Amino acid sequence: MQKSSSIILFDGVCNLCNGFVQFIIRHDAAGYFRFAALQSAEGQALLAAHGISLPALSDPDSVVLVADGQAYQHSTAVLRIARRLGGIWPVLAIGLLVPRAWRDAAYRLVARNRYRWFGRQEACLLPTPALKSRFLGS
């Protein structure tokens, strides 16, 4: 893994989360981000290394960004990811000025309803051969 990369842990069976990963891949021309499903052995190892336990891996409630030796969750993870993307997306990082409690309340509203609104898959996303190197454990 490159020293200058960060890892995004995501719910591998969530359609919204998989769409978010595809969005990041499209807007991360430098290939800065790598990915792992929260449910994977690699994802579990990273969570444990950062002292994070999610309520239920069958319904994890957060995306996790591991960057610079830190782990970020919920809205902070999403906004820090946006800051590293190309195009206009870094502007969203201004949301970090909003109190975290408010940001996370909105984040959790979407997280609680994401399967109902966007659906879920039976198995985790399988990367294409061209993207395989960006996914841990692939």
Rank of each mutant, 00 (worst) to 15 (best):
S4F: 14
S5T: 15
I7T: 05
I7H: 01
L9K: 06
L9I: 15
F10T: 01
F10C: 02
F10P: 00
F10Y: 13
G12F: 05
C14I: 06
L16F: 15
L16C: 11
L16D: 05
N18C: 00
G19M: 08
Q22A: 14
Q22T: 09
F23K: 04
F23G: 08
F23A: 07
F23L: 07
R26S: 02
Y32W: 12
L38T: 05
Q39V: 05
S40Y: 04
A41C: 07
E42W: 01
L46K: 09
L47T: 03
A49N: 08
A49D: 08
I52G: 06
L54E: 02
L54N: 02
A56I: 06
S58W: 07
S62W: 03
V63G: 11
L65R: 09
A67Q: 13
D68H: 04
D68R: 06
Q70F: 09
A71M: 08
A71Y: 08
Q73R: 10
H74C: 12
S75A: 11
T76C: 09
A77S: 14
A77C: 04
L79K: 08
R80V: 10
I81D: 04
I81H: 03
I81P: 02
R83G: 15
R83M: 15
R83Y: 15
L85M: 15
G86K: 11
G86D: 10
I88P: 13
I88M: 15
P90T: 00
V91L: 14
V91I: 14
L97T: 11
P99D: 08
R100W: 10
A101E: 05
W102C: 06
W102T: 13
R103G: 05
A105C: 01
A106F: 14
Y107C: 00
L109T: 15
V110E: 09
R114H: 03
R114P: 03
W117H: 01
F118L: 11
G119A: 10
R120C: 04
Q121S: 12
E122K: 13
E122N: 07
A123W: 08
L126Y: 08
P127S: 06
A130E: 14
A130Q: 13
S133R: 13
R134V: 08
R134Y: 09
